[in-house]
């Protein structure tokens, strides 16, 4: 009698794979528009033509009034208002600029300083002609060459920021996303990490501040930006990075600005989200390898046992 098992196995595998292909890769390719990353190059923004001077930049940043809205803690400049008040004034708390030079792309920063709504790609919401101004006021120059002045400020921000290798996932996330998005599983709220309070009263007082902040943010954005705790599982890395690179590509008309991160800080942001929503990925890999080895050994023993038992049956 001919052994038909190999062909039966092939038939089973064939139909299984066809079904898998149709309901997974194929169906998803039909349901979701695939957006390719542009490498965080921000090709629509003009290249920087001037080399900046950090010392001059420091002075310019003081005079341009950046610190009137932003804190720059490494330079000893605290926030002019607490987060809740700032959100009441601007809709959102302007982020601390200590590490802006490391998190954001220089070309993006230069454009942001000159024209925030343009760099942030929220021009559909703001129209200076109609008196609808972006809450971050644009910098119109201090009398010199504006491009040189902007380049100097960018150089200053880069000089005070942590080095690329030292940028932690947490700092990248807080600087780029933390003012809008909570990440409950990491205890992160829009006004900072929620401390462990001894008294429930203090804890509730903190929660009320968060709610006040969120109310302002909701007014500013039109909706509350979602808690990103599980987004690494619900959206996946590819979607999140291409969305952050240019939110308008994926959700046309969305209120989320283009935040202008560098590819390196995007990786750090992703790592932060993985720590929140896929915390055990390293353990999974390590244990996966061991389980596979164990199971393969089990299968080999099962095969040998079968061979032995069946020797007398033929």
């Amino acid at each position: 009698m001919k052994n038909k098992e190999p062909i039966i196995l092939l038939v089973v595998i064939f139909f299984t794979l066809v079904t898998y292909y149709l309901v997974e890769p194929f169906a998803h390719s039909q349901m979701h528009k695939h957006v390719e990353s542009e490498g965080f190059e921000y090709a629509d923004l003009p290249a920087m033509t001037k080399t900046g001077d950090a010392a001059k930049g420091q002075e310019l940043v003081m005079n341009a009034g950046c610190a009137g809205c932003h804190s720059i803690e490494v330079a000893g400049m605290p926030a002019p208002m607490d987060a809740v008040m700032a959100a009441g004034a601007y809709g959102v708390n302007p982020p601390d600029l200590s590490n802006a030079g490391a998190v954001f792309d220089p070309k993006f920063l230069a454009d942001l300083i000159k024209n925030p709504a343009h760099a942030l790609k929220v021009e559909h919401k703001y129209d200076p002609a109609a008196g609808k101004m972006h809450p971050m006021v644009a910098f119109y120059g201090m009398g010199g060459d504006i491009d040189q002045e902007v380049a100097d400020m960018v150089a200053y921000l880069q000089s005070i920021a942590v080095k690329k290798e030292e940028l932690t996932p947490k700092v990248a996330f807080e600087t780029a996303c933390g003012r809008c998005h909570a990440v409950g599983y990491e205890e992160w709220t829009q006004i900072g990490e929620k401390p462990k309070f001894k008294h429930e009263k203090d804890s509730l007082a903190f929660d009320i501040k968060v709610i006040d902040y969120q109310d302002s943010l909701m007014k500013y954005m039109g909706k509350l930006p979602p808690d990103l705790s599980m987004y690494i599982r619900s959206r996946g890395e590819h979607y999140i990075s291409t969305f952050v690179e240019n939110p308008q590509n994926q959700l046309h008309g969305t209120a989320m600005p283009r935040v202008g991160v560098t590819p390196h800080s995007m990786e750090k942001v992703i790592e932060y989200l993985e720590d929140a929503g896929d915390t055990k990925r390293h353990e999974r890999e390590a244990i996966g390898k061991n389980v596979m080895i164990y199971i393969i050994i089990f299968a080999i023993f099962a095969l040998l046992w079968k061979k032995q038992v069946w020797r007398d049956l033929h």
């Binding site: 596979m292 199971i295 393969i296 089990f298 299968a299 080999i300 023993f301 099962a302 095969l303 046992w305 079968k306 032995q308 038992v309 069946w310």
Partner: peptide, 12 residues
């Protein structure tokens, strides 16, 4: 014994 052999492959 054959069941177990198939189970082994399946578990992989």
């Amino acid at each position: 014994s054959k069941d177990m052999m198939v189970v082994g492959v399946y578990l992989v």
